[in-house]
């Protein structure tokens, strides 16, 4: 099995300084870029399997780098961002970033995101038909959801919502993406639909809807399906 290559784009030398040995120790090959221009060049030449991209770059806007790469490549991109830059995160996700992670972060969190992103790339090639989480199992082909062997009765919209999240297991799905894929393009802003349906869905699939383990809320951004593998 080939070693997966990760491109880390960050202009802070301190960040690079710990990511290089840490990701290396986690079994990845690390290539670095400190500017947007350098990132674009390296993304094209080094063929990375995942890109970790800090949005604040000295020479250009990180979102422009993202859009530029997305124009020709579907390589998974994970955004490094600050908690107070919510709108920036959402914009990046809508521009095609796969996930984000907030600074400061633990290395375990980052490697989990990298794994989810890599797994998704494999799914794209041959889609997984079965998913499980906390005793819940979803058959995406037969459209059947069971918990502990018992079939759950979901409304079509609830099922669509769950399937959408499950297909992106381990990764964040933004409100807008969920709304437009389940309810249609005209409902991209109707956040209250989501609140209601996610609530109903959790009531049916979670063991303790007050402490959801399967569908996790990413405040201000969207939801994340946590499967057994994550």
């Amino acid at each position: 099995m080939t070693v997966e290559r990760i491109l880390v784009v960050d202009d802070e030398p301190q960040i690079q300084r710990f990511l290089r040995p840490a990701l290396g120790a986690a079994g990845y090959e690390v290539v670095e870029a400190a500017t947007g221009q350098e990132a674009l060049k390296t993304a094209a030449t080094a063929a990375p399997d995942v890109i970790i991209l800090d949005l604040g770059l000295p020479d250009m806007d990180g979102k422009d780098v993202l859009a530029n790469i997305r124009a020709w490549s579907q390589v998974p991109i994970i955004i490094l961002s600050a908690r107070d830059r919510e709108s920036e995160k959402i914009a990046a996700l809508d521009l095609g970033a796969d996930d984000y992670i907030e600074k400061p972060f633990g290395i375990g969190e980052l490697t989990a995101r990298i794994r989810a992103a890599l797994r998704h790339r494999i799914q794209m090639e041959g889609a997984e038909a079965q998913l499980s989480a906390e005793g819940l199992s979803i058959d995406l082909v037969r459209r059947v959801v069971t918990r502990d062997g018992e079939t759950l009765r979901l409304t079509p919209k609830e099922y669509d919502l769950l399937a959408m999240l499950a297909r992106h297991a381990g990764r964040v799905v933004t409100h807008k993406t969920l709304l437009t894929s389940v309810w249609g393009a005209a409902h991209g802003e109707d956040l209250h639909y989501l609140r209601v349906f996610i609530g109903q869905l959790r009531g049916k699939i979670e063991r303790d809807p007050g402490d959801p383990k399967i569908i996790r809320t990413e405040p201000g951004v969207g939801y994340r399906f946590i499967g057994d593998e994550d």
């Binding site: 802070e12 301190q14 960040i15 300084r17 710990f18 990511l19 040995p21 840490a22 290396g24 120790a25 986690a26 600050a82 600074k103 400061p104 972060f105 633990g106 290395i107 375990g108």
Partner: peptide
């Protein structure tokens, strides 16, 4: 945040992956 991110990152790396470094 930058120094904090560095410290958190380095500490977690050492703890979780230090053995392999």
């Amino acid at each position: 945040r930058t120094p904090l991110a560095t410290i958190t990152g380095a500490v977690t790396s050492l703890r979780e992956l230090g053995a392999r470094m």
